[in-house]
Design a protein around this nucleic acid. Sequence first.
DNA 1: GCCGTTGATTGACGCCCGTCATGGTGCGTT
DNA 2: AACGCACCATGACGGGCGTCAATCAACGGC
Lengths: 268, 268
Amino acid sequence: MTDSPPGGAPAALVTGAPAHRRRIPLRSTCAQPHECPRPMRMRILAQIPLFAGLSEADLDGIDKRMVSLSWGEGDRLYTAGEPADHLYVLAAGHAKAYQSAPNGQDTIVDILAPGDLFGGLTTAGRPAHTETVEALATACALRMDTAVFRQVLVEHPQVGLRVLDEVAALLGGSRSDARQQTAVTVADRVATTLLRLADRFGQHGVSGDGTLIQLPLSRADLAAMTGSTAESVSRVMSRLRKDGIIESGRRWTAILDRDRLAAIAADD
Amino acid sequence: MTDSPPGGAPAALVTGAPAHRRRIPLRSTCAQPHECPRPMRMRILAQIPLFAGLSEADLDGIDKRMVSLSWGEGDRLYTAGEPADHLYVLAAGHAKAYQSAPNGQDTIVDILAPGDLFGGLTTAGRPAHTETVEALATACALRMDTAVFRQVLVEHPQVGLRVLDEVAALLGGSRSDARQQTAVTVADRVATTLLRLADRFGQHGVSGDGTLIQLPLSRADLAAMTGSTAESVSRVMSRLRKDGIIESGRRWTAILDRDRLAAIAADD
DNA sequence: GCCGTTGATTGACGCCCGTCATGGTGCGTT
DNA sequence: AACGCACCATGACGGGCGTCAATCAACGGC
């Protein structure tokens, strides 16, 4: 469904017809933290690729050893420096994982979506969280002790392989990030970042105009992902908007012309 | 004390007494690729923390499924884009893993030392190498099929956990790299990079003057690690040398005053 | 011991982008 | 409906650093 019907989303949306509407088109999730009921938790666990192939009984055993938690927008799931003795699986919502420099400058190292594994993946040698995780929207996650998790891995080596693959994929992504940070111009970095976000969180044809990135990301957030500043990102995006490549507003972005954006990003 | 003592290391070392000697103080390893004899391979396998706790028979079984290979300086162990169906364990020498941008700009994502695991850690979803690995000096590595490796992990879940920890550590390092790339000045990045290299590859008091980094890294290599250019790195290092913080020459670097270097890096 | 090659150094120039500052705009709140 | 708060946009300015280019020094080979 789109935001066109009467009632529904903000009616003010139909006002600025020709120029450009800057009303937020993001669908809002439930506004309040809640408790995941048990059936939903089981459904979530079963959907996680990680635990695919496990028997009902195994899943049940795992569920019994996990607790469900929830947070509101802007809340921190955990903070860098705290002891990392829990493993999390995001069940609903989105979150950003970032590191802060003494500088004050933050760097977003990952965006977490439902099904993603994070937190204390390892206890050996790295006893404290190295990053802070903060909810971008109301979020719900399941939590398990790392010791218990390691026990599960030993009991189910196949699951261990899948975890290894997942972490290896994260490593690949992170190295790719590190490389793209060295891209010459800020425009390049913003372009590739937007493309990746669109591929991962894009939603097509909400109101007929391109791909909407379903995340409430501010200019400052994008700056933290591109190693730049909010002002520079704003400038780049203004230009992209003038050229008809993207559309954006307060904490939302849509991609109108993927090809031209890719052309800009190509210089990497 | 300085480079005064007679005899000792390379005799040529005593020549440039007052100004600064720029002779390469790196110890050279064997110059030619060679075949690892079987006893040495077993010793290497046994030393790898990864396989600690495995029985002699298990190690023997693993050794039988690995082949030993070697390369000269500058040779490529593998190249980005090639199918990644082997897993490597470095036995001797050092290597750099880097990604190349369409730009031509390279980014070093890891320096590999004996005992390090690399190559096709995962087959799922990432069938091709994403980086190129090149020997910095004569290197020897053991190689195993990824399918066989996964079989080993299933048979020895404890080893699987250790692999997971190792990859998680790599992930942490990579994210830390990504953050430090955003440090304000090139001087900051060079300083932190040198510190990390010294901590990992440093060798104290070879000729009495600080910590020597036992790696043949060129300015271009350091530039690829700091997201900069060889010229900028050269300028920064000239300044550091003038200030008596480091000593360096053609493809070698030594740290004289760790504290002041750390002070520069502190701005991160 | 001499020479060619490769890597390091240094200078000059210009532009990108980080910084500071100001005004504008959407959105939640009452 | 109106207020106030973040967030966004845009201008001006200056310095850091990427680029091009020329020179120098060190290492390996003969």
